[in-house]
Simulated scan of single mutants.
Amino acid sequence: MSQYLLEKVKTLDPINPNRATALFGGKSSGILNWNDIAYPHWYKAYKRLLANFWQSDEVNMSSDVKQFPMLSDKEQETYLKVISLLATLDSSQTRTILLTSLYATDPSVQSILAVIAQQEAVHNESYSYILSSVVPLDKQNEAFEIGRKDPVLLKRNQEIMNQYNQFVEEPTIENIIKILVYSTLLEGLFFYSGFAFFYNLARQNKMVGTSTMISYINRDELEHGRYISELIRSTLAENPEYNTKSFTDWVYEHFQKSVDLEIEWSHYVLNGVEGIDLEEMEGFIKYRANKMLRMIGLSEIYPEHVNNPMKWIRAYVDNFDGTKTDFFEQRNRQYTKVTDLNGFDDL
Results as ranks from 00 to 15, higher is better:
Met61Trp: 00
Lys206Gln: 10
Asn332Cys: 02
Tyr252Asp: 06
Pro151Gln: 06
Gly275Gln: 05
Leu49Ala: 11
Ala104Val: 00
Ile217Trp: 00
Glu223Tyr: 03
Ser211Gln: 04
Leu99Cys: 12
Phe320Leu: 09
Val338Cys: 08
Pro240Ser: 13
Met213Phe: 02
Ile263His: 08
Glu262Ser: 14
Val115Asn: 04
Asn205Val: 07
Phe327Gln: 06
Thr94Ser: 06
Ser111Ala: 05
Gln55Phe: 08
Ile116Lys: 03
Phe24Ser: 13
Ile228Pro: 15
Leu113Tyr: 04
Ile116Phe: 01
Gly275Tyr: 02
Trp42Cys: 14
Ser183Phe: 00
Ser215His: 00
Leu50Gly: 14
Tyr252Trp: 04
Val59Gln: 03
Thr105Ser: 13
Ile263Met: 12
Ser92Ile: 10
Gly343Cys: 10
Leu80Asn: 04
Asn332Pro: 12
Lys206Arg: 08
Tyr335Gln: 05
Tyr199Gln: 14
Phe144Thr: 12
Gln334Ile: 07
Lys10Tyr: 00
Lys286Trp: 00
Leu222Arg: 03
Val152Phe: 02
Glu253Arg: 06
Met213Ser: 09
Ser193Gln: 12
Met292Phe: 02
Val115Gly: 04
Ile232Ala: 13
Gln76Ile: 05
Asp346Ile: 15
Asp106Phe: 03
Ser132Val: 05
Ala237Trp: 08
Val135Ile: 11
Met295Ala: 14
Ile176Asp: 04
Tyr103Gln: 09
Tyr287Glu: 09
Asn271Gln: 10
Arg219Gln: 01
Ser229Asp: 04
Ala117Phe: 00
Leu98His: 10
Phe320Ser: 12
Ala114Asp: 03
Gln55Thr: 14
Leu186Met: 07
Ala117Arg: 03
Leu201Glu: 06
His41Asp: 14
Thr248Lys: 10
Tyr39Gln: 15
Ile160Trp: 04
Phe24Gln: 10
Ser72Leu: 01
Gln204Lys: 12
Gly147Leu: 00
Glu58Gln: 09
Ser193Leu: 04
Ser28Phe: 01
Glu282His: 05
Asp138Tyr: 01
Leu153Pro: 14
Lys337Cys: 09
Asp64His: 08
Thr184Trp: 00
Ala22Asp: 05
Asp73Lys: 02
Asn175Glu: 05
Arg294Asn: 12
Arg19Trp: 00
Leu80Ala: 03
Asn157Lys: 02
Ser234Gly: 07
Asn307Ala: 09
Phe344Val: 15
Pro303His: 11
Gln256Lys: 11
Gly209Glu: 06
Gly25Asn: 06
Asn319Ile: 11
Leu236Lys: 12
Val115Cys: 03
Ser234Ile: 15
Leu341Met: 10
Ile179Glu: 07
Lys311Ser: 13
Gln119Cys: 05
Gln55Trp: 02
Ala143Ser: 06
Phe247Thr: 15
Leu261Asp: 12
His305Gly: 10
Trp42Phe: 11
Glu264Lys: 08
Phe328His: 08
Arg331Val: 01
Gln119Leu: 05
Gln55Asn: 14
Thr248Gln: 12
Lys66His: 03
Glu329Ile: 07
Gly275Cys: 09
Leu186Gly: 11
Glu221Met: 02
Asp340Trp: 01
Phe68Cys: 09
Val317Leu: 07
Ile179Arg: 13
Pro107Met: 03
Pro40Ser: 15
Ile263Cys: 12
Ser72His: 02
Leu49Cys: 08
Lys286Val: 10
Tyr43Asp: 14
Leu80Pro: 08
Ile112Thr: 08
Ala315Arg: 08
Leu5Ala: 01
